[in-house]
Design a protein around this nucleic acid. Sequence first.
DNA 1: AAATCACGCAACCGCGGGGTC
DNA 2: AGACCCCGCGGTTGCGTGATT
Length: 401
Amino acid sequence: MGRSPCCDKVGLKKGPWTPEEDQKLLAYIEEHGHGSWRALPAKAGLQRCGKSCRLRWTNYLRPDIKRGKFSLQEEQTIIQLHALLGNRWSAIATHLPKRTDNEIKNYWNTHLKKRLAKMGIDPVTHKPKSDALLSTDGQSKNAANLSHMAQWESARLEAEARLVRESKLRSNSLQHQLNPPGYAPSASASASTSASAAQLVNKTAWNSGWSKSSEGNTGVLNSTGLGVAGDLESPTSTLTFSENAPPIMSTGLGVSSMPMIEFVGTTSGSSDTGIIKEEGEQDWKGLGSSSNLPEYKEGMENSLSFTSSLHDMTISMEEGWTPESLRPNNGHVNVGNVMDEGFTNLLLNDSMDRSLSDSGKESDENSGGSGDGSDYYEDNKNYWNSILNLVNSSPSDSPMF
DNA sequence: AAATCACGCAACCGCGGGGTC
DNA sequence: AGACCCCGCGGTTGCGTGATT
């Protein structure tokens, strides 16, 4: 038999939401939460299908959504995670404070993709188009390996996101109890909610779901949090958790064509790419200060400070890329000469050229395109540092936490 | 000032996965 | 075991708005 429609479309409204509808939906969810989206519209007095309500809530009405222009930090995050994860918007969204997957997807399609293409970079592979055309077998293999790695990472991120949502649901319930009936979503409210949610999640997720999966593996668990450490291991996983501390990411990632890269986690969760850290937008001042991101700062100070220790890992790309080959004890990870252009930095510098009046010095330092070997090395190191820092810091930095 | 074009974003659509009965 | 339900995700569409001619 055929698939049933998501809802009875007869008599249901479509198209843009009116303020009245928004109000009804908000009021209902604030009072009852959203147990079943399918049943919600009738209960809330809305002539919409549940799917439409869910979309409206998750993409627009949710109090913990930041709207407006993307900061350069966010652009960087999107580009780097897209290089790693592809069009896994929901996974990418878990790393971007208060941004929805839909918003990120739109931003990518309307801004970033075009900018990459304009610079001669394939938005799909994140490699210069000429490189893609001239790709050798080895490079193809490396690309395939990277793709494989991305799949694992994606799975990991999705699992994380799922846990986050569950935990957040719990935190929201708690928050709801704490909020007076007249609670109205606002920037400040959402920030505090986020902060408390982050703290709560530290306790709930790590003490419940994650700790479950760490049974018999005290303090160390697979970051999928699904208790499948033995079955599914992320290439960048094997997070170390302690009771009150966030996970310590233990990842080393080397590139075959260059010396072993040492990844040093930063507590800021931002990249240490050395990319220009100034911009008209204050929220791009680096997350270390996080003047506009109190939830970050608070999270860091209260419970989210962490360090990244190095566990060398070796994966022979010649033998293929398997979960088994990624076990930390194996030594080093050789990812091959992938992402061997500092194009993300170039891209970001380009975008900063748009917004910075005086950035020549640092742009020169970071463009890396025509530098000598050490520049080249630095670019690669920075690039992967950025990505891994983003990934590594996901549980603590993510707004979802 | 009007028409046209380009762009950005909110919302929709269809599919797939996981859970339940 | 499989039919069904529900939800989430990624791709796509269509409308509103600002820019250009």
